[in-house]
Design a binder for these strands. Structure first.
Lengths: 106, 106
DNA sequence: CGTATAAATGAACGAATATTCATATTTGGC
DNA sequence: GCCAAATATGAATATTCGTTCATTTATACG
């Protein structure tokens, strides 16, 4: 059940949806990789050592979730984390591997 | 495919696995609910308004992921977040709905 | 004990997701 | 324009996941 709301842009509406995009070994590796700066698909692929098409699919998931964004760079495409990434507050949950800070309730 | 490793207790090894446990509307609601204190299954059920069995399955996911823990309390069972939840560091990713702070690389 | 209440479990099934493979698109260079 | 490189897309399939339903376990109480 999607809500292909014509007015708004992409999905990734619910928190769960965004977490779902991160909740994958491969996509998490991509995000981790991009946290050290923008990177071309080829570089990411080399770094992770996975198949081209598979990576592309995962990148699309991340794009759809509004977690990464892509820009053409010659023959290649440059990926980077979206600027959705910066803020602060309370309500922290430590997973051991990472901490999740929930917003006070949207 | 589980790895019922005889020596250790539960799974929730990888970060992705834990995120996966959180990446669900219902389970997220449970966690949110428990963030305001321990609660019996019945209370959680009333608060979320979902079926008993369904909630139970979701609680098991959260338990397996090491996110919540259960203790008997008479006829009822009391749930609360595990003490995996408290720490601090850097490498923050803002999802709009919540921020995820990755540990420096295990 | 028998019964009621609270919660957990397991099987079944459909829906969502990941992966692969083949093909299409975009771009730069010749 | 044509070719190769880089990436995206779509269909087909396999796998995982969420939900329901029926049943079971555990506890308290009379």
């Amino acid at each position: 059940m999607k809500t292909p709301d014509s007015s708004s842009r992409s999905n990734a509406d619910s928190c769960a949806a965004r977490l779902k995009a991160l909740a994958d070994e491969t996509r998490l590796a991509v995000v981790r990789h991009l946290m050290s700066g923008p990177s071309h698909v080829g570089e990411i692929q080399a770094a992770l050592g996975i198949e081209q098409s598979l990576l592309s699919h995962h990148l699309r998931s991340l794009r759809d979730a509004g977690i990464v964004e892509a820009t053409r760079d010659g023959k290649a495409v440059l990926y980077q984390l979206t600027p959705t990434m910066k803020r602060r507050r309370d309500g922290i949950v430590d997973l051991g591997c990472c901490r999740i800070t929930f917003d006070p309730e949207s």
